[in-house]
């Protein structure tokens, strides 16, 4: 059913910390690894070992250079996947009802058995979060690892999306963004979490934490002038050790 729910009981989603992400692409690999053998059709690759490899991914990491007015440029790694929007335009355009948003937790999913592969939902998504699988002819997108987060066959610490579980930098957080008391909501409040393309009116659930302001090199010189060494020669036990070793 492509009519969007008025409200959802919970708003499960991700909080991605652009300050912490090191751009290692581990989440991309973990996502592809889990989702190619879990929900729905596999994530196919075309010409994987050839000159023009291409494939379906539900999560991709971009890298941007940000040049402030003064000071050094910053490199920001930018993971991007479905933001599970509250006003998801990808859902309402779907002619078959294959795309839907769940009323219980807000996850946006595709029922692949009903998808005709028209691609209109991918056109409607501003974020490039939907990709048509070239082998299967159906639309693939992030499921928020719906088959992990409620999976009682997995140990408790694994019941989070594969990308969150794998991130070595701790740059990805999963939780209920509809509950103001949840860890993720408090993180968003504390760090000024933001929406991508707010003017598109999609009201994304996923939030991005902006990079913290960087120190400026010249300011550092002023605030902390280099200290002169207090003694040239080390004394005490270390001094003795140093001299003893010198003699050997």
């Amino acid at each position: 059913m492509t009519t969007l729910p008025e409200t959802t009981d919970r708003k499960l989603g991700l909080v991605i910390d652009l300050d912490t992400c090191v751009g290692c692409h581990a989440c991309v690999v973990a996502c592809k690894g889990w989702n190619t053998e879990a929900y729905g059709a596999p994530l196919s690759d075309q010409d994987p070992y050839g000159a023009e490899p291409s494939g379906t991914f539900l999560n991709r990491v971009h890298s941007y250079e940000v040049q402030p007015e003064d000071g050094a440029a910053q490199l920001v790694h930018f993971p991007k996947s479905c933001l599970h929007c509250e006003d998801a335009p990808c859902v309402t355009v779907c002619p078959t009802g294959a795309s839907y948003k769940r009323a219980e937790d807000g996850i946006v999913l595709v029922d692949e058995s009903a998808c005709i592969g028209c691609g209109l939902c991918a056109w409607a998504c501003p974020y490039g979060a939907r990709e048509m699988d070239a082998a299967e002819g159906v639309m693939k997108k992030c499921t928020l690892c719906v088959d992990r987060i409620y999976n009682e066959n997995l140990p408790e610490q694994d019941r989070v999306p594969a990308c969150v579980r794998t991130c070595p930098a701790g740059a990805r957080h999963f939780g209920d963004l509809g509950d103001p008391e949840s860890d993720v909501s408090r993180l968003v409040a504390a760090r000024g979490g933001m929406d991508l393309m707010p003017e598109q009116g999609t009201r994304p659930v996923n939030k991005y934490l902006p990079p913290r302001p960087r120190d400026k090199l010249d300011q550092m010189e002023q605030s902390a002038p280099r200290l002169d060494p207090v003694i040239e020669e080390p004394g005490g036990f270390l001094g003795w050790l140093d001299r003893a070793l010198e003699k050997l």
Partner: peptide, 9 residues
């Protein structure tokens, strides 16, 4: 607006 990084530079 796409990256939300415009405030920095």
């Amino acid at each position: 607006s796409a990256t939300g990084l415009g405030g920095t530079g």
